[in-house]
Design a binder for these strands. Structure first.
Length: 846
RNA sequence: GCCCCGGUAGCCCAAUUGGCAGAGGCAGACGACUUAAAAUCGUCCGAGUCAGGGUUCGAGUCCCUGUCGGGGUACCA
């Protein structure tokens, strides 16, 4: 007999699976219950790498597990194949982005096949196929018709390297582009947006449903990103202006402490207010605005930077006390948050205080934070002698002098009718008063902004809008979809800040479908996150050319039962997919509001403590690993390395060790000498118990993603079986066959080639992929005896072998009779006995 | 700055959720087989759970403080 040779196994079984196609899910006569297991689809840049290998190994464990449990599992794969890298590669090397993209897809497809991923290859999709992006355009037009897609002239994030606008979500916290790494700048542009802010409350509140099924980290990141704050809108009369200006504040209780107002320099409001001011003021404002616009996101977001700003020479009237306050402009106020204007309360807001101190503006305390809050237990500070400092001896509250805004709770002062109230009571009362007076109301606002989806690049979905001569926006009629991308011949794809499509004259020039007058196509393409926001639905009927997806299939399969992917998409992709799902629900196309019922985030694969990269010289090539250790060993290593959400440092794990274990398991099958018809009952009881304990435990471990523990249990079972063969009843024992069969089925989750070969050696055909998980025999799970620990004062003094059914009184009697226990108690009085039958007795003497 | 997560043998990780700290692997040592080596098989070596305090009959597990590491977020009114 030959030794374990992973190359031979791979060559033997791959053609068999191709022939058998055990992972097809589309049989309408299939009556098994269904599960939808989805891996995030890849972007086709080059071949698969170690990160893909981890993600797809783990997703495959879950898909194969549910199949073993008797489910019809939908486990599809496709490619997120639009996007800038294809276009940039095309520019750099002069190849058509189509060729680059589809060549890469072919390569990845072959690698996945070799990697033994259990995908349903009948359902493959590529988002760059016209058959796919047609439905992107359909979705866009559905949203356009509902007012959810709209154009807006606004300051946008501009990537000066890729020469395109970016969504807020694509700008990293350090102000650089997540794609190109360039420092993002602001430009004013008319762009297409999707009205995700209309869904902010639902996107936030529905996260509660996902609690427990999604990683809490992702949930909190999404909550943070949506960033709902509650407070009040307050209307301020502006001198010399008919309309009031509304500001949003989370601290309406401090309204009596307002000493000035600040508007965002890049807001329409600032421009309008300054228009009526003196020429010097206008000049100063212009200078300031230019200076602000020149600054990058990085500079702007540096909170330690000194406050800057200029007065606008205009005044507002505080609605609660009639005070006249100056209006300033400063870039610490953002144009697109709230109303682009704030009421400044320097005594109780650090930013306002910094600004007031920089420009000598008044500071008025309206909340005494030294005063005990009504109903609360006062916390007194102690002096150096440990004596309590009484409130009236505390240092005076003077933020103007200390530079520290008073943000705590306390008692309202200098606030007319609010005096004496606590912060939260004052907020309630002032909102009532504002509402009664008609000068304000309770309000909430969000950090989330509308989703900017237009891109000035070639390799994406054309936006299906025609611009009429008079600027009207006409949807491309349904029967003219898809709007195909023009060929790249003669087009200059070099980024120049305008969509290359605009230069394709034949393509861009059309007649107005309404009145036949000359018109032009919208030259922009969509953000590729639109493509990936609904692809999980297209998998359900990938070849349906009459609609985006078949709602009957959606009722059968969706939402996705288990989604698997990297935490890098915690905000972007997952938020967009949730949003689009809710839109499709509102439009009546689906009957659920959340796309992914459960989410597993796998960690990253590192090398020597950091992410792999060519420049760091720590790149581990997947193909090298597969050549050296084989597919099964690499997959097993991914599963065994630790909890799936933890990063794997390839330097810490041992694919060679995995290969050794697989060889050890595989040899068991060759040592089984009994036939499949053997009577299990005749087998070695100890091994049978262990086998059935594995059968009972493994499902719970898999379902809680403890793949590493399942592998460890398999190792134990292999060790025990080996022992039974070599130094027990031998390879002819029924328990050896039973254990080896269970090992083969268990291993099929992680190491399909090895498992398949074992299964054949054990005399079964055609495929372990079509086997089922065996039920554990309850009779074999009952232990005959257990070890009871006897403690004295918490220290273990004796161990007793007892029946698992022993009652407390009997166990206590045995424990107190133990010589070791009696010795250890000595002549101390026994003060208590805790009995947890059948495992533990603790006798206390204190 | 704010929010969240983590620290268990030299290393990667388990521990029925408050009940004997060790399942598994890597590395290491020794032995068997071999002319020898590899492969294989067997045996062994190993922390008292980051530090301090608290709750409890009992704490790796719960609470507090600190520390180290990781992540998210940051003029969001």
């Amino acid at each position: 007999m030959q030794g374990y040779d992973f190359r031979r196994l791979q060559e033997r079984w791959l053609p068999v699976w191709d022939e058998l196609q055990p992972f097809r899910s589309g049989d309408p006569a299939d009556t098994r219950p269904r599960k939808y297991v989805l891996d995030m689809f890849p972007y086709p840049s080059g071949d698969l790498h170690m990160g893909h290998a981890e993600a797809y190994a783990l997703g495959d464990v879950i898909a194969r597990y549910w199949r073993l449990q008797g489910f019809n599992v939908l486990h599809p794969i496709g490619w997120d194949s639009f996007g800038l890298p294809a276009e940039n590669a095309a520019i750099k090397r002069g190849i058509d982005p189509r060729k680059w993209t589809y060549d890469n897809i072919d390569q990845q497809k072959q690698s996945m096949r070799r990697y033994a991923t259990s995908f349903d290859w009948d359902r493959v999709l590529h988002t760059s196929d016209p058959e796919y992006y047609k439905w992107n355009q359909w979705l866009f037009l559905e949203m356009f018709k509902k007012g959810l897609a709209y154009r807006k002239d606004s300051w946008v994030n501009w990537d000066p390297v890729d020469q395109t606008v970016l969504a807020n979500e694509q700008v990293l916290p350090d102000g650089t582009s997540e794609r190109s790494g360039a420092v993002v700048v602001k430009r004013k542009k008319t762009q297409w947006y999707l009205r995700i802010t209309d869904y902010a409350d639902r996107l936030l509140d529905d996260l509660n449903q996902l609690e427990g099924s999604w990683p809490s980290k992702v949930i909190s990141m999404q909550r943070n990103w949506i960033g709902r704050s509650r407070g009040a809108d307050v209307d301020f009369v502006i001198e010399g202006r008919a309309d009031k200006v509304t500001v949003f504040t989370t601290r309406p209780d401090t309204l009596y402490g307002v000493t000035f107002m600040v508007v965002a320099p890049d807001s329409d409001l600032a421009a309008e207010l300054v228009a009526g001011a003196d020429p010097e003021v206008r000049m100063a404002f212009q200078d300031y605005l230019e200076q602000v616009q020149k600054s990058t996101e990085i500079e702007r977001q540096d909170a330690t930077r000194d406050k800057t700003g200029v007065p606008l020479g205009r005044f507002a009237i505080n609605p609660v006390n009639g005070e006249r306050i100056p209006i300033w402009t400063a870039d610490y106020v953002l144009a697109d948050y709230g109303h682009g204007a704030v009421m400044a309360v320097p005594a109780h807001d650090q930013r306002d205080l910094d600004f007031a101190r920089a420009f000598g503006l008044p500071v008025r305390v309206v909340l005494d934070t030294n005063a005990p809050v009504t109903g609360a237990v006062p916390v007194l500070e102690l002096d150096e002698n440990g004596q309590a400092i009484l409130p009236d001896e505390l240092p005076p509250l003077d933020p103007a002098a200390t530079g520290k805004a008073l943000v705590g709770d306390g008692r309202m002062i200098n606030s007319g009718p609010l005096d004496g109230l606590s912060k939260s009571n004052a907020i309630k009362k002032i909102i009532e008063q504002l509402e009664a007076a008609g000068t304000g109301r309770a309000a909430k606002t969000y950090r989330l902004r509308d989703w900017l989806i237009s891109r000035q690049r070639y390799w994406g979905t054309p936006i299906p809008i025609i611009h009429g001569e008079n600027g009207e926006l006409i949807p491309v009629p349904d029967d003219q979809l898809p709007v195909l991308l023009p060929p790249t011949d003669g087009l200059d794809l070099q980024p120049r800040g305008q969509s290359p499509l605009g230069a394709a004259e034949d393509w861009v020039t059309v007649t107005n479908p309404v009145d036949g007058t000359p018109a032009r196509r919208d030259p922009d393409t969509m953000d590729t996150f639109v493509d990936s926001s609904w692809y999980f639905l297209r998998f359900l009927s990938p070849n349906d050319d009459s609609r985006a997806f078949d709602p009957r299939e959606a009722d059968k399969w969706a939402p996705v039962d288990q989604y698997v992917g990297g935490v890098t998409h915690a905000i972007l992709h997952l938020l967009y997919a949730r949003f689009i799902t809710k839109v499709l629900f509102d439009l009546g196309y689906v009957s659920f509001t959340e796309p992914f019922s459960a989410l597993l985030n796998q960690g990253m694969v590192l090398m020597d403590g950091s992410a792999m990269s060519k420049s760091k010289g720590n790149l581990v090539r997947l193909s090298d690993q597969l050549d050296e250790h084989g597919v099964d060993a690499v997959r097993l290593t991914m599963a065994f390395a630790g909890p799936p959400e933890d990063d794997i440092d390839w330097a810490d794990v041992s694919p060679a060790g995995s290969a050794k274990f697989l060889a050890r398991a595989w040899r068991l099958a060759g040592d089984v000498t009994s036939s499949p018809e053997i009577e299990w009952k005749t087998g070695d009881v100890a091994l049978r118990r262990q086998t059935h304990r594995f059968l009972a435990e493994a499902p719970g471990l898999i379902e809680s993603f403890k793949f590493n523990v399942v592998v460890a249990r398999l190792m134990e079972l292999v060790n025990a079986t080996r022992k039974t063969i070599d130094s027990g009843p031998g390879g002819g024992d029924a328990a050896v066959r039973e254990a080896t069969e269970v090992i083969a089925v268990g291993l099929s989750l992680f190491a399909p080639y090895t498992a398949e070969d074992m299964w054949a050696t054990l005399g079964y055909a055609p495929s372990v992929a079509q086997a089922l998980w065996r039920k554990a025999d309850p009779a074999l799970l009952i232990e005959e005896s257990v070890t009871a620990v006897v403690q004295v004062d918490g220290k273990v003094r004796d161990r007793l072998t007892v029946s698992p059914k022993i009652d407390s009184a009997e166990l206590e009697r045995l424990a107190r009779a133990s010589a070791a226990v009696i010795r250890s108690i000595g002549d101390q009085p026994v003060t208590g006995v805790i009995v947890r039958a059948p495992r533990l007795v603790n006798i206390t003497t204190r």
